[in-house]
Amino acid sequence: MATQLLAYPFDPYHSIVEHQQHAALDKQFGATASFIGTMRDFNDNTNVSSMVLEHYPEMTQHYLDKLEQQARQKWDLLDVLIIHRVGRINPANPIVLIACWSAHRRAALDACAWLIEELKHNAPFWKKETGQDGERWVEKNTDGF
């Protein structure tokens, strides 16, 4: 299973390159679709200097593994990589990487879009931001549009 929860910063572009050198993908993939979520230094019109991402370790890992399995059942994918940060995160740090590999573009693009929406709506993570007025829990995700 290629889902990882990381308590330290990572380079998503390096992760993609490293992962696609895996033997199972060798010369088979024609399409790679990726989504990278990065921490902003503002939210709801206030500055944010850092945040802590809390999670429910066992359920979060279980949920991400399940998402990967569901995506593989729904689309003809060669591989999937999901990496999500936990712990303290600073602006400009990547929070999440989703990458999908397939022979043709449609499966990779559609699976990647589906995975990030499912993750944001259901995976048990919670953001607590630190800003000029102290700490506050983020109560809900933005619509994303």
Binding site: M59, H84, I116, N122, A123, P124, W126, N141
Partner: peptide, 10 residues
């Protein structure tokens, strides 16, 4: 059994 608020990951 776990109880938690709406999730905000990603």
């Amino acid at each position: 059994v776990a109880f938690f608020p709406p999730v905000t990951g990603g």
